[in-house]
Write a protein that binds this DNA or RNA. Structure first.
Lengths: 333, 333
DNA sequence: CTGAAAGCGCTTACAG
DNA sequence: CTGAAAGCGCTTACAG
């Protein structure tokens, strides 16, 4: 590895001057700078970021944490898309992304301790879990952070307009003539599950739909939706439409309906929540509330970098959602 | 931030002794060690990994690189699952994962330069691209590395048994009575696309299926499969079965068949390659060649860590595939 | 069993 | 415009 000393030796300047030239200080003569930059090029030198970090206290690395105690897992397309958006945004500003976990060298530490140990400049937390001790610690720390898909007034948060999403779904079903609308809810320990449920209840209230029932769908899995739908199918007063808190739940419900020998959208209209890639590709394609994952990632990046650079106050960013009409919804006579 | 000096001051020992106690050196008296560890606990001290890295030349960080010039993108479920498996394996050994890109602080550098700059201990490259200058540089470097989904004899490589997968697919279709089998191939610039095509050709040769045709499916997208299938549908001598080089391609093909008013599996049997989550959930569910993504990730981790620790010779790890029989395949009379 | 000192590769006051 | 020196927070010969 070539170091700053090699460049100094080759050019005859001190490492101080080399460092200055490299960091675009103005008080280096153009001639000197040119010489140094040429040597840097020749010797294929890149400053060691570890040494730089040690002396500047700035790592140009951001930590990303998945709190997945509930076991939803990072394989869910939502998370990946959000991360992708986040990554793109921060890379542009020169930051690298580092996955933080709870184990370092075989020893268990908290996510926060790990972040501190690694010296990241900030943390993005993806936490579906409503109240988590680990996340509380991060929020309460002085390390800049942003929380995605959960809520707190003490830090930066980014999530979809879940309430509005539920409202859009019920509005649409109502406009199609449905009066008995059921909800397959997300896990009650998740922030988004609760919010979507709350939105559903408020919409149902608005239209005075006293028949509406709710089935617990659990952790946003296909199987959870399947089971919930089986419960709904046994109801005496069956719904004609189902709004599920996630696309996976909706897909599971569709399967249950099919297995019962019934049809979507003839017997049941269905709306999901997410708009994962799959939803447009299945048959019938799924009407759903689209979350703008890229935007969520970008927003998270923006809030986090803002805090890192200007120490702004905690900011809440609620990202708009959109109703995507497809084939699983149908007007009833 | 509390440092090793704080612990030294509090306990009255030198930083040398504190460091020794922390790193489990044997030549520290049990009593001293206990005192120091207590202080560490009390003061909530965690060693600064940046400083440690600077003095030991070991970062306990691994770089991960996506070469996605072709634009397949990291959102493809295959990559995410592989990364997940890789991540789990290396975390257990105390390594963190850091995403490497080509931009650092706004300036463009190669992936290798970035890795060197960051001081990672090794690199995992996910590269569908067959020959890539950047990847060549990494392979040719002295930094330990492993290449996933591409081939070279000069470094560690891990990929599925693509040839065997194609063979399994054709064998099965043949056993169902199909004699006119088409292949929707992956992009000819991708290693896996070429391998699966090669496997297909060899199987077709084995059974002397002179009718078999091939349609280019491009970059493993649903739309690519759709377009390829449209071509196949126009053939005078239509195939009765299609083996697609990816599940997305197969799903696209299914859509094209449906749009043409035809049916799977009645009019066409279809087999994909991947076994992405979606494949089991669509209707009809997709018969496919399952890749063991977790295993690929684990193998990559193992080879990389081996090279880091013992400087082993370049190793090729070919991960077995498996035929998953589902609803898109059917015997013909 | 313990400590003083040098060194890892940078940056940044301070001095000239 | 340039350089000598100190410092970032650790680890590791070397000495005792």
């Amino acid at each position: 590895m070539t170091t700053i000393y090699d460049i100094a030796k080759k050019t005859g300047f001190s490492i101080t001057t080399v460092s200055r030239a490299l960091n675009n200080y103005t008080d280096v003569s153009p001639k000197t700078k040119k010489l140094i930059l040429e040597a840097v090029e020749d010797m294929h030198y890149y400053p060691n970021s570890v040494a730089r970090t040690l002396s500047t206290k700035k790592s140009w690395a951001l930590g990303i944490i998945f709190v997945e105690d509930l076991g939803i897992g990072m394989k869910h397309p939502f998370f990946n898309s959000v991360i992708e958006g986040f990554k793109k945004s921060v890379e542009q500003k020169g930051y690298d992304l580092i996955f933080l976990n709870r184990y370092v060298g075989g020893e268990k530490m908290t996510y926060l301790d790990h972040a501190l140990h690694r010296g990241v400049d900030g943390i993005a937390v993806v936490s579906s879990n409503y109240d988590d001790v680990e996340v509380e610690k991060i929020i309460g720390s002085s390390l800049p952070n942003v929380i995605i898909d959960s809520h707190t007034s003490k830090s930066n948060v980014v999530y979809s307009d879940n309430m509005r999403g539920s409202e859009l779904a019920v509005d649409y079903l109502y406009s199609l003539g449905h009066r008995n609308i059921a909800h397959i809810s997300g896990h009650s320990k998740t922030f988004v599950g609760l919010e979507r449920l709350r939105g559903f209840k408020s919409a149902v209230e608005k239209y005075q739909l006293h028949n509406s029932s709710i089935a617990e769908g659990g952790l946003f899995s296909v199987d959870g939706g399947y089971q919930a739908m089986k419960t709904l199918l046994q109801l005496e007063n069956r719904p004609t439409a189902i709004f599920a808190a996630g696309d996976n739940l909706a897909i599971g419900a569709m399967k249950a309906i099919k297995d019962a020998g019934l049809n979507v959208p003839d017997d049941f209209s269905i709306i999901g929540f997410d708009d994962i890639e799959l939803s447009g590709q299945i048959s019938p394609s799924l009407t759903t509330i689209k979350q703008d994952m890229d935007k969520i990632g970008e927003q998270a990046a923006e809030l986090l970098l803002q805090q890192i650079n200007h120490k702004t106050d905690p900011t809440i960013s609620i990202v708009p959602v959109e109703l995507i009409k497809r084939e699983t919804t149908k007007a009833i006579k």
